[in-house]
């Protein structure tokens, strides 16, 4: 798991089945992907990790949504909100990825939350579909937020994940395309490489001491 597309939406949320998306991801240079609403499997050498997105306006709604989850949710991703909600989401142990930071107020993710995210190994997701489908102000705002997050990440070292946010194989991006798109907000090739490893880092965190045979 060295190169992961951190969020795709297969059929019925999109127009492509999870197998076809996995096949396409393999051709685009990925070895794994997180598919919302899908079960974990491996198809043509590409590891598919299931994912669940929870959304709530405050901590209570988030916890209620988490209680409703039955079975194995895979990677639990939460939609970010204001500062209080983001802080609460970082405290909830089960949430592994914060999504949708671009749509939150500018002060909703600062140096304190960055440090907390780094300590708890909660990743922040950069959804590249906004840079593709967004226009004018929406795209400019997303680029500004991503550039700001890239600065915080280089200082505090919390994990990044990169997602295509694809609902179709036509919206999936290759690793080469991701490098080009991330260049728009100043994330260099090494940064992109680290972000593509983000899911692996949160699923299999490095231990202080590890026995290597």
């Amino acid at each position: 798991m060295r190169c992961t597309d951190a969020c795709v939406y297969p059929y019925p949320l999109g127009d492509s089945t999870v197998r076809r998306m996995a096949q396409e991801a393999g051709e685009l240079g990925f070895d794994s992907m997180v598919a919302v609403g899908a079960r974990g499997c491996t198809y043509k050498g590409v590891e598919v990790v299931g994912g669940t997105i929870i959304q709530g306006r405050d901590q209570r709604e988030v916890q209620a949504a988490m209680r409703r989850i039955d079975g194995n949710p895979g990677i639990l991703m939460a939609t970010a909100g204001d500062y209080t909600l983001n802080r609460a989401l970082l405290h909830v142990g089960r949430v592994r990825v914060l999504q949708g930071i671009h749509a939150t107020p500018k002060n909703s993710f600062d140096h304190i939350l960055s440090k907390m995210a780094a300590e708890r190994q909660v990743a922040v997701d950069l959804d590249l579909s906004l840079l593709v489908s967004g226009r004018d102000y929406a795209r400019q705002k997303a680029l500004q937020r991503y550039a700001d997050l890239a600065g915080l990440q280089s200082r505090f070292g919390f994990p990044f994940t990169l997602s295509s946010g694809a609902r179709s194989i036509l919206q999936m991006k290759s690793t080469r395309d991701m490098v080009a798109l991330c260049g728009l907000f100043g994330l260099d090739e090494d940064g992109v490489g680290g972000a593509l490893l983000g899911i692996a880092k949160i699923l299999r965190p490095e231990k202080a001491v590890e026995v290597v045979e």
């Binding site: 593709v132 194989i169 080009a180």
Partner: peptide, 20 residues
């Protein structure tokens, strides 16, 4: 390459342009 990755429609038909 960045602009090719950002192309998602040609003549209102969904298309992906992937630089190789």
């Amino acid at each position: 390459s960045a602009c090719l990755a950002a192309v998602h429609q040609v003549q209102e038909v969904s298309v992906a342009v992937r630089s190789i």
